[in-house]
Design a protein around this nucleic acid. Structure first.
Lengths: 162, 162
DNA sequence: TATTGTTATACTCTATAACTATA
DNA sequence: TATAGTTATAGAGTATAACAATA
């Protein structure tokens, strides 16, 4: 659990043509892991009527109570137009509500509708079923490791990014 | 490093309505991590002419020497038509070559062209630059943890899946 | 008849640029 | 002038179903 040691002569970006140091190796593996596992996850997480991205927004709203398109776009790391579209579909489906923002006419207040709330609460079991079965199969100790890994990856890739 | 302990009364899928046990919590966090970080990675990994998915195929071919559309689809976890499209674009760009398979006329032999090889070797530094800078910033010890985490996630999500 | 690959079709995901409305 | 959001446009990613060619 020692903090760090930002040193070591082994991390030099060795010359082009040579090109395969320790960090590059890890980068490649991580890249493939994220690319492939997000594909698998999407295919297992999408239901007939609510896609993975849409569900992610619903789940966030269910926890936070309300939000705005801009804040949701930031949180999900998508561009504003993408969030507009996601919200458009969710609104069409009657799962979210867009209303005037009190105090700032430019903003929009996004909240979950009753059916939207149901989708999150009822859908959780089925939607995450595949992922949960993977985690169940992994066993308690590996789950603990995965918990730490998840937090570390989030810090490394998401929060810490420039 | 003890293997497992597939037991514990705490992992019951508690009743609907209640719905938020330890595994569900982890599943939710993992889902969001993969969704968001793959978005970030794609945006940082795509160049003007070669997308993240395309590059992934090139990188695999560079290592393996040759492959077939079917094998590549399996490896990347995409459906055959998707791989056909990816290969079509790479072939148009002159980065891969499709040729008759010796011995089995149904199959297609896919290999890297000279420019394709260049894209992989030269592009690696720039392409993975963002990810590598994240990993450099993390420090050696966290990288070691990330290495283990990557392997564990791959076993849990990709290899072990039913 | 089974396998490999492609074509056809139809979505979702994603971004940049341009526009509208409010502050 | 700056900010929040949307519309317009374009392209990549993805899957299922139908088809062709070979084994």
């Amino acid at each position: 659990m020692t903090p760090q040691g930002e040193d070591g002569p082994s991390v030099g970006v060795d010359g082009p043509g040579e090109g395969h140091d320790e960090v590059t190796e890890l980068a490649g593996e991580l890249r493939r892991l994220l690319l492939v596992s997000s594909r698998i996850l999407r295919s297992h997480t999408a239901s007939e009527d609510v896609s993975a991205s849409q569900y992610s927004v619903l789940a966030y709203l269910q926890r936070s109570g309300e939000s705005t398109p801009g804040a949701l776009a930031d949180f999900e790391h998508v561009s504003p137009p993408v969030m507009t579209r996601i919200l458009g579909r969710l609104e069409e489906a009657g799962l979210v509500r867009r209303a005037a923002h009190p105090g700032d006419g430019r903003q929009v207040r996004v909240t979950l509708t009753e059916p939207g709330e149901q989708v999150v609460l009822q859908g959780r079991a089925e939607r995450d079923a595949w992922l949960r079965s993977r985690l169940q199969a992994a066993g308690p100790e590996e789950r603990e490791t995965l918990r730490e890994a998840t937090a570390l990856l989030r810090r490394t890739l998401i929060e810490r990014r420039d």
